[in-house]
């Protein structure tokens, strides 16, 4: 078995001359909870639609379970083994909750009745209500219920917590963690809620303008980033050329703030070599790293 459940290499896609993806590379390790981040329009939903065979790539390659996503037959096999929540969270408005469950179940041979019952209770979904009459939050929960009951090996969730209240978000994250911990389900999800990604993800990818600019384990990412805070005794007369790794330098009078993406040790040494400078370093959270990357480009 492959170590990576999803492998995307050089994926390229444009719509009427508008580039959505330009050579995207992403690898999702089996068993991981993978946060897929990017600003609106960075190409997240396009990537997910390509993975599901809803769109077809212009160039590049993507495989799930080792199967090519752009092959029609393989795509059906892939879809049998995944659970999907779309960005829109829209289901057939004329069906009731009960009907859409009965409609969906036969498509998935590994369907989990136990999980279906559990989520029905947890999410408090009214079986007889028409989907057209559900609130957005309820539709999101219903879509999650359907996707998470597939008995899937991989969940592909496009902004799963969108439209949910904080308590529901916590419930959903807990259930996702439980699926990951006890069933070994791999979870690939996009989100704008960086705090929730930081809470449950162990791998992240940040994409911008259709390219992955970060893709590694969250621990490694946070280990290599530091914010340095340097205070000089006298304001330096000439601007300092910082060693590589200093991503974002902000100087105000005698104090300098540096966001370092690597090479922290050398930067600290460099700062210390300036007479009368005191250096402090702080860990950086995902939010700062994200903002640094998508603003820098």
């Amino acid at each position: 078995m492959n170590d990576f459940l999803v492998e995307i290499a050089g994926l390229t896609k444009s719509f009427r001359g508008q580039t959505a993806l330009s050579g995207l590379d992403v690898k999702v390790p089996a068993g991981s909870i993978f946060g897929f981040l990017g600003r609106n329009g960075a190409g997240k939903t396009t990537t997910i639609k390509l993975l599901l065979g809803i769109l077809k790539p212009d160039a590049g390659r993507a495989t799930i379970f080792g199967l090519p996503v752009s092959d029609l037959r393989a795509s059906i096999e892939i879809r049998r083994r995944i659970g999907f929540v779309s960005e829109e969270k829209e289901l057939y408005p004329y069906m009731t909750v009960d009907q859409i469950i009965r409609f969906t179940r036969p498509f998935f041979p590994a369907w989990r009745d136990d999980l279906e019952q559990r989520y029905l209770k947890l999410f408090e979904l009214p079986l007889k209500r028409k989907i057209a009459d559900l609130s957005k939050g309820m539709r999101s929960k219903l879509m999650l219920l359907l996707a998470m009951s597939h008995g899937a090996e991989l969940l592909i969730l496009d902004e799963p917590s969108d439209g949910l209240d904080p308590a529901a978000v916590e419930d959903v994250l807990r259930e996702l963690v439980a699926l990951s911990a006890s069933e070994g389900v791999t979870i690939f999800f996009s989100s704008h809620q960086l705090s929730e990604v930081e809470q449950v993800a162990d791998y992240v990818s940040i994409i911008d303008h259709g390219k992955a600019i970060v893709g590694e384990s969250l621990d490694d990412l946070k280990a290599r980033y530091r914010r340095l805070h340097i205070v000089f005794e006298n304001e330096p007369r000439t601007p300092i050329r910082w060693a590589p790794g200093a991503e974002h330098v902000r100087q105000e009078g005698r104090s300098v703030s540096i966001l370092a993406s690597r090479n922290v040790e050398e930067l600290v040494e460099q700062a210390r070599s300036i007479p009368g400078a005191s250096v402090e370093q702080f860990p950086v959270n995902l939010r700062e790293i994200f903002l640094e990357h998508v603003r820098g480009n």
Partner: peptide
């Protein structure tokens, strides 16, 4: 498993 679920943290 239990810790991950209780604290809603990544099991890995």
């Amino acid at each position: 498993r239990k810790i991950a679920e209780d604290l809603v943290m990544n099991p890995n």
